[in-house]
Simulated scan of single mutants.
Amino acid sequence: MTYLQSIGEVIGFLLLSTFSILDGIIRSFIPKKYKMKNIGGEIALVTGGGGGLGRLLSLRLANLGAIVIIWDINETGIEETIKLIRAAGGTCYGYVCDLCDRTDIYKKAKIIRKEIGKVTVLINNAGIVTGMKFLDTPDELIIRTMDVNIMSHFWTVKAFLPTMLESNKGHIVSVASLAGQCGIPKLIDYCASKFAAMGFDEALRMELEYEGYNINTTVVCPYFIRSTGMFDDVQSRYIPTLSPNAVADRIIMAMRCNEKYAIIPGYLQILLTLKCKRRFAKP
């Protein structure tokens, strides 16, 4: 590469960066209701849809006209979600799927393609937490946390991304956590898995953009959510725990507006910025 080529690439990079910044500023002034895409008729799959946040997301997707598929290990929870959605006039199918089993994921994905069609919206929502000190956490629980919270993202995306690429259409949502932004005692395995989920989303999005595909990805980082069975015992001193309904609404909005990144609540973005400044500050 010649000296002039190097200069040209730097100038090109600066111009593209400037354009992206200006585009983002202009888009920020457009009301969200005008940016929301229609998902009516889309086939949307939600992992962990048998209860909690996954059920709320499934209900909202169905209300917007999507054909909803839920995966969960809880068969009773699956049946309850299906009943709620169908009672409200929506379309929903459910499958028992063990997200710790890559073979089961691929098997159920093949069944879905045959019986229902091509999934165009994938929401990797399922998650578990142990809440134990690192040295007290059994190895098998650490492995299970990583399998459900991040490794399943690899397998579900590998299962459904090929058909999205064929039509150059799709959206992948990764439900991470603010625990993926900062370390928390007794949540070492959980934090690690959510850090990984954020990295997975960012690298996947960059690869898809580099290859010229119009596949959207969104990573969501909520604070502790109450009434989902995961963090009900958390005593939050300064920041109130979140309503699952509010989080579900925000996730659907982020997805429909093609947001790449959503912090919930949004004002915590300021604290994360201060954290980054502290991390890179000179000692």
Rank of each mutant, 00 (worst) to 15 (best):
T18H: 06
L99I: 00
E166H: 02
N214F: 01
T218W: 02
L53K: 14
Q269H: 07
G94A: 12
A179F: 06
V247D: 07
I150K: 00
F29P: 03
R279W: 04
A281P: 02
I270Q: 07
E115G: 05
I188H: 05
I264K: 04
L135M: 10
G212A: 11
I43N: 12
A197Q: 14
Y106N: 08
I123C: 03
L271D: 06
V173P: 01
T76L: 09
K32M: 08
E209I: 11
T273P: 00
V119H: 01
R237K: 14
F195P: 05
I73G: 07
G8W: 09
F13Y: 11
Y213L: 04
V157E: 00
A254K: 06
A88R: 12
I150M: 03
I252A: 02
D232E: 13
E259Q: 14
M151I: 14
D23K: 12
Y267K: 05
K260L: 08
K277C: 08
F29I: 13
R250C: 11
S227F: 14
K158W: 00
A88Q: 15
N74V: 10
T120Q: 02
L84K: 12
E209S: 14
L187Q: 14
V96T: 15
G180I: 08
V10P: 01
L242I: 14
T228K: 07
I123V: 15
G212D: 13
V247E: 03
E207R: 07
K169T: 02
I111S: 01
Y3S: 09
L165T: 00
N125L: 12
Y106F: 15
P283N: 12
I172V: 14
F134H: 08
I11K: 06
Y223V: 06
